[in-house]
């Protein structure tokens, strides 16, 4: 499912004294299969935008299509039947577009991990047999790297922070979405937890989920993990491209109130002292290129 939007506008506190534009004409296309990063400083409209993608915030003005679902604003009055149809569509859309909010562990509520993870499955697919629900739930829990038998009957509140987050993510991917959106998935995790989470996302991307969209503040993570990136600023997408294209222009990035990843920073500083490193700013590629450079100079010295 491709995501396409054009001139999307949204106001908070509409018709009151405190009105403010959260989206100011967002135009963006996200192709199926991408590992898409959304960056931008606080208040740039990222979170508002992603909540449009599964209909949590109805489109006020502009065009938005997600796969076959047209979420654009229509002025045509709808009949009761059409409204019902629309509601069913919305449910299907939410099933196909999974959304993991910031600190998703705060949405856990059920008595057992099993109940919590199967919540989405039961909502989206009420006609499944208990056995089918069990299989889907088990799959989801195992996909996020937890031991199903050990954890299924525990209370989600007695787990560790990292485990809670995994359970919450399992609760979203359990209903097999084809697009997964995550808002700051690594916020508050320690470095090990962070690496593990990115690895999890990559394995999800390879195996079950076609498109992953990540909102992040951490440019290092974005540079190392995403295939394309969109930069949000003041409710607009001001640039899209590969991490390499974006981060090579460090002046532009800092204009948006952001920082370039460490790799880009190093590349630029090395360039200033006459050492040219060519990489796509992922940690691995950068290390490789730098190693190559060192080898070459050694050879030259000999």
């Amino acid at each position: 499912m491709d995501i396409f939007c054009k001139d999307l506008y949204y106001q908070y506190n509409k018709n009151t004294e405190f009105v403010s534009y959260a989206l100011n004409g967002v135009s963006l296309t996200i192709k199926e299969g991408e590992f898409f990063g959304i960056i931008g400083h606080t208040g740039s409209g990222k979170s508002t935008f992603i909540q449009h993608l599964n209909g949590l915030i109805p489109v006020e003005q502009g065009i938005l299509t997600v796969g076959d679902y047209d979420l654009s604003k229509t002025d045509v009055k709808k009949s009761k039947k059409e409204k019902k149809q629309l509601k069913d569509n919305l449910k299907n859309l939410r099933r196909s577009v999974g959304m993991v909010f910031q600190y998703p562990e705060y949405q856990l509520f059920a008595e057992t991990v099993f109940d919590d993870v199967s919540f989405g499955i039961k909502n989206f697919m009420p006609n499944l047999s208990p056995e089918e629900v069990r299989i889907l739930t088990k799959n989801a829990i195992e996909t996020v790297g937890l031991d199903y038998e050990k954890i299924k009957d525990k209370s989600p509140f007695e787990l560790s922070g990292g485990q809670k987050r995994r359970v919450a993510i399992a609760g979203v991917i359990a209903s097999r979405p084809s697009i997964l959106i995550l808002d700051e998935p690594c916020a508050g995790l320690d470095p090990t937890g962070k690496t593990a989470l990115w690895n999890l996302l990559h394995s999800l991307h390879e195996r079950v989920i076609k498109t992953i969209i990540v909102v992040s503040h951490d440019m290092n993570d974005v540079a190392s993990n995403c295939t394309s990136v969109a930069v949000f600023n003041r409710g607009k997408v001001i640039k899209t491209g590969t991490p390499k294209e974006l981060f090579s222009d460090s002046a532009f990035i800092s204009d948006c109130g952001l920082e370039v990843p460490v790799t880009a920073y190093l590349t630029e500083n090395l360039k200033n002292v006459g050492i040219k490193i060519d990489s796509d700013y992922t940690i691995n590629r950068f290390a490789e290129s730098f190693a190559n450079y060192l080898k070459n100079t050694e050879k030259a010295d000999l």
């Binding site: 949590l56 449910k91 959304m99 705060y106 949405q107 989405g120 909502n123 989206f124 609760g171 979203v172």
Partner: peptide, 11 residues
């Protein structure tokens, strides 16, 4: 936020 999160899970 919680309402949005649970709606996203089909509530």
């Amino acid at each position: 936020r919680i309402i949005a999160a649970q709606k996203a899970r089909g509530a």
